[in-house]
């Protein structure tokens, strides 16, 4: 008789071809204190049920692919160990606040649109002029945005944000933090273009500073802080329009 320890994973299942509602399926998986939740999901897919669908790639907290709800908390499943839950069962669900494509896979469409909207890249007016050499930057200038550049687009922050779940117009924590990251970059000249997107309607003002995006961020980006700083910049620019000459730009 085997003495192998096991534990239970209750996994969210939804196959759009056959299911009108999701269901939970329980699996007994081997318990290994070195295993993370992603290892258990891969074991299920390899040994029990090949139809289980989930995203993953790097397995070391860099690619941001394996974000799921683990017992109600948004987590990178490659970074959360079975031993932290054993012997209690673990409930694994797709990230909340996103439409579910299949099982543990959510649709990225809305997030990608929002990310693209904030133009998360350096914008320069002199992009074709290389006569000046590199765009130099001091360590102090780098420090202004470095924390916000650590985002891996894992979307855990969207799953933790109640506003992202209720307000479609809200651009959300990661997109706004990345917009702010480029606005704070001394090499960038695109703040006016980004603010045109960020300051419209509920795009940024929908944030009520709940702060859970920062709590769940696996890379310590602090999107909540970035958003409040971006709001302050937006407010300053709003009042500048009354004193700056028309056409002077932001």
């Amino acid at each position: 008789m085997s003495t192998e320890l096991t534990m239970t994973l209750e996994v969210f299942r939804y196959h759009p071809e056959t299911d009108s509602e999701p269901r939970f399926q329980a699996y007994e998986v081997p318990y290994d204190e070195d295993w993370v939740v992603l290892d258990a999901l891969n074991w299920i897919k390899d040994h029990v049920d090949g139809s289980l669908t989930h995203r993953w790639s790097c397995r070391m907290g860099v690619c941001g692919s394996c974000g799921m709800m683990v017992n109600g908390d948004p987590k990178l499943t490659c970074a959360v160990f079975l031993k932290d839950y054993y012997p209690r069962p673990i409930k694994v669900e797709p990230l909340v606040n996103f439409p579910v494509e299949r099982d543990l896979v959510v649709s990225l469409d809305g997030f990608m649109d929002k990310l693209e909207a904030v133009k998360p890249y350096i914008i320069r007016g002199d992009v074709n002029d290389t006569s000046g050499g590199e765009y130099l930057q001091s360590p102090a200038e780098l420090a202004q945005y470095k924390q916000y550049s650590m985002c891996i687009n894992c979307m855990l922050c969207y799953a933790a944000c109640p506003v992202a779940g209720h307000e479609d117009e809200f651009l959300g924590p990661a997109a706004l933090a990345l917009g702010h990251r480029y606005n704070k970059d001394s090499r960038d000249q695109g703040q006016a273009e980004r603010l045109d997107v960020m300051l419209v309607g509920e795009a940024i003002w929908g944030c009520t500073f709940v702060g859970e995006c920062t709590v769940v961020c696996p890379k310590h980006v602090d999107p909540a802080g970035a958003i409040q700083q971006a709001k302050a910049v937006g407010a300053q620019e709003f009042f500048k329009r009354f004193v700056a000459p028309k056409g002077a730009g932001v």
């Binding site: 939804y14 759009p16 494509e101 649709s107 933790a160 702060g211």
Partner: peptide, 23 residues
Amino acid sequence: MSGRYHRPHGWAWFLERPGYIRF
């Protein structure tokens, strides 16, 4: 059946996480 599944949002969302209650 086909299509994406949209999970419903409950009115008591603010009870779902301790951080929401603190907020």
